[in-house]
């Protein structure tokens, strides 16, 4: 999962302090693994260096780092590209996909498109596996089936998510 893209995405709704960013991330995506402050600062400085964010202002009289970050146009493009790029089909990528879907919703992009392109990417892999299976021996078939079933599970989850997008949109928006 790309923390950089996620934080960028969170900045799209408006400039935030590093502290706010961490809180928003933890709330939406952190679940049982909250983000360390250090991670936030190192990521933000990398993004700053790459010109994807800029410092919007510094709050006076506050704690050690009260910088407020805002996303640049380059940042927005980067988020867009990231969302449009399907993940390489592999096991346990739901968390990344989930993040993408939620971010798409948060940034008012079409979450269905995210799902469709991901499905397309999965199918590409499945076609290769299916073809291998058809021309391979039994061992090949078993190995391919294992992979196929996992990929199918991803896609099922995707379909289910797609079907629940409306509900998710409502929850995310609150």
């Amino acid at each position: 999962m790309s923390i950089g893209h996620t934080l960028l995405g969170l900045l799209e709704s408006g400039p935030r302090h590093g502290y706010d960013l961490k809180r928003a991330f933890d709330e939406k995506f952190g679940h049982d693994r909250p983000l360390h402050y250090g991670q936030v600062y190192s990521t933000m400085s990398r993004l700053l260096k790459n010109g994807l964010v800029e410092v919007d202002g510094i709050e006076a009289g506050g704690g050690p780092e009260r910088k407020r970050y805002a996303i640049t146009d380059a940042g927005v493009t980067d988020v867009e590209r990231w969302l449009a790029t399907p993940e390489k089909p592999e096991e346990y990528l739901q968390s990344t996909l989930y993040t993408k879907v939620v971010l798409a919703l948060l940034t008012h992009r079409n979450a269905g498109d995210v799902l469709d392109s991901q499905r397309s990417e999965h199918l590409r892999s499945m076609r290769i596996l299916t073809d291998r299976k058809r021309h391979g021996d039994l061992a090949d078939q078993l190995v391919c089936d294992h992979a196929l079933f996992h990929l199918e599970a991803d896609l099922r989850w995707l379909e289910l998510t797609a079907a629940r997008l409306d509900k998710l949109r409502a929850e995310v928006a609150e």
Partner: peptide, 17 residues
Amino acid sequence: THEARVAAYSDREIVVR
């Protein structure tokens, strides 16, 4: 089809929504 493993027998897919 709505089954990915069946769709995997295709050359390409289109999605209707």
